[in-house]
């Protein structure tokens, strides 16, 4: 079972619970068969929703570090409140990305901060399809719109999206961008 540390331990600007974040992450890690230690850092000073995942090595016991702006976990109907659904999708996406980074065929993937918008979106779509098959409920049309914004509003782009959404076990070089 993963050890999970969440900072801050107590939130002051948003009504989030570090224990609940850890609990959701633990459940997702078990479903993804990830046993690595996980460190989660939430920036509650901003309502934006940027997030990134990194691993400190490619070894099986590498520490996974997830960084999220508070908007990534937020209930958009009730601002500053936590959304279980959103948290599952955001943390699930980051854990999938971290598990990809633990694979040899993602060794060439740049750190998240260096990804282009197109690379970031393609990877997001690849994660979205897998999240759906894990039993979560990402809204596919959102991902499709994001993908079209980066790659174009064309039929061939939609075909590429569908292929990416349905894929498993891709390597970094299989992703467009």
């Amino acid at each position: 079972m993963s050890t999970i540390a969440v900072t801050p331990e107590r939130f002051t600007l948003v009504a989030y619970d570090a224990d609940r974040i850890a609990e959701i992450t633990r459940g997702l890690a078990e479903r993804l068969q990830l046993t690595n230690p996980i460190v989660i850092e939430v920036d509650e000073r901003t309502p934006l929703g940027k997030m990134s995942a990194s691993v400190d090595s490619a070894s099986s016991d590498a520490t996974i570090r997830l960084q999220l702006e508070s908007g990534a976990l937020e209930d958009t109907k009730n601002l500053t409140n936590f959304s279980d659904t959103r948290a599952h999708l955001s943390l699930g996406r980051l854990l999938l990305r971290a598990s990809d980074r633990l694979r040899d065929d993602f060794a060439d993937a740049p750190p998240d901060r260096d990804l282009t918008n197109a690379q970031n979106t393609a990877w997001k779509v690849y994660c979205g399809g897998r999240l759906e098959r894990l039993g979560l409920a990402p809204i596919q049309q959102q991902y499709r719109y994001d993908f079209r914004n980066r790659f174009g509003f064309r039929d061939d782009v939609d075909t590429l999206f569908d292929r990416l959404w349905a894929s498993e076990n891709l390597g970094w070089h299989d992703l467009p961008g």
């Binding site: 958009t76 109907k77 009730n78 601002l79 596919q140 049309q141 959102q142 499709r144 719109y145």
Partner: peptide, 12 residues
């Protein structure tokens, strides 16, 4: 909104 993948009432 539908085209962009937004659900009605998704935001406050």
């Amino acid at each position: 909104s539908d085209w962009m993948g937004t659900e009605l009432g998704q935001f406050s």
